[in-house]
């Protein structure tokens, strides 16, 4: 079938002396079931080998290919091209430094992640393995699916303005996920990190993180839980 879509892609070449971004439009033949990532592959393979974008698993597991599609932060591999007609504008994630084309510098985002001890802190040396029952998993069930794709962070207006001053929805989701884990004993330390002025109080319950999360994690609910924990600490 002769269906096509125009991809208007943000381009920035750091080796270009003028260092000015521009938009370049490519026309791609679409086929049923095609994702945005596949369309980008088509551009890369057949039209322009200089285009840069991050990807890895193509299955919404690795969280590498988050980008701005028509003004909304989404995973390219999880978005069907058939959702769009005519022209699709593809831009890098907002609020982060751009390295090249659609590749952004995620370091500030992961810096916040490291602050919260994103691993299980045991209460001492266990003498046998920690048993997880279904009820234990249910406590953390949707939040454990987080793939660190940065969509929540880059959708949040508060995170755009100040990444050093707001720890961000992703780190807070992770705090919720580890604090509610029955194997973990580091909850107090993590709460100390997030109940400061650059922590949970900067969340304005805008719900953009929950709205755009490709894994449908109720992020705002987790942050509200942490706010209550911080108040009644």
């Amino acid at each position: 079938m002769g269906n096509t879509i125009n991809l208007k892609i943000f381009r920035l070449d750091p080796e270009n002396a003028r260092h000015e971004p521009y938009y370049q439009t490519y026309t791609v033949k679409t086929k049923p079931g095609m994702t945005v990532l596949e369309a980008l592959f088509n551009v890369l393979d057949e039209q322009d080998g200089t285009l840069s974008f991050r990807y890895s698993c193509r299955w919404a597991i690795c969280g590498s290919c988050a980008m701005t599609l028509n003004g909304k932060c989404r995973l390219a591999c999880k978005t069907q091209i058939s959702e769009y007609r005519g022209t699709l504008t593809i831009e890098p994630l907002p609020g982060l430094d751009i390295i090249k084309d659609l590749v952004v510098d995620l370091e500030p985002f992961f810096n916040n992640y490291r602050k919260i001890k994103p691993y299980l802190v045991p209460e001492g040396m266990p003498d046998k393995e920690n048993i997880q029952m279904q009820e234990d998993v249910d406590l953390i069930e949707p939040h454990i699916k987080c793939i660190l794709c940065a969509v929540c962070e880059t959708s949040c207006p508060i995170s755009w303005t100040s990444r050093e001053k707001y720890i961000g929805p992703m780190a807070l989701t992770k705090v919720y996920r580890f604090n509610r884990d029955t194997r973990d004993a580091g909850g107090k330390e993590r709460l100390e990190v997030v109940r400061g002025e650059d922590g949970v109080w900067r969340c304005r319950t805008i719900f953009r993180c929950t709205e755009y999360c490709p894994k449908n994690i109720p992020i705002t609910e987790a942050i509200q839980f942490l706010k209550r924990k911080s108040v009644f600490k």
Partner: peptide, 11 residues
């Protein structure tokens, strides 16, 4: 201290 922000939020 940096944990003061709880109070204005609550108020």
């Amino acid at each position: 201290n940096r944990y003061f922000s709880t109070i204005p939020w609550l108020l």
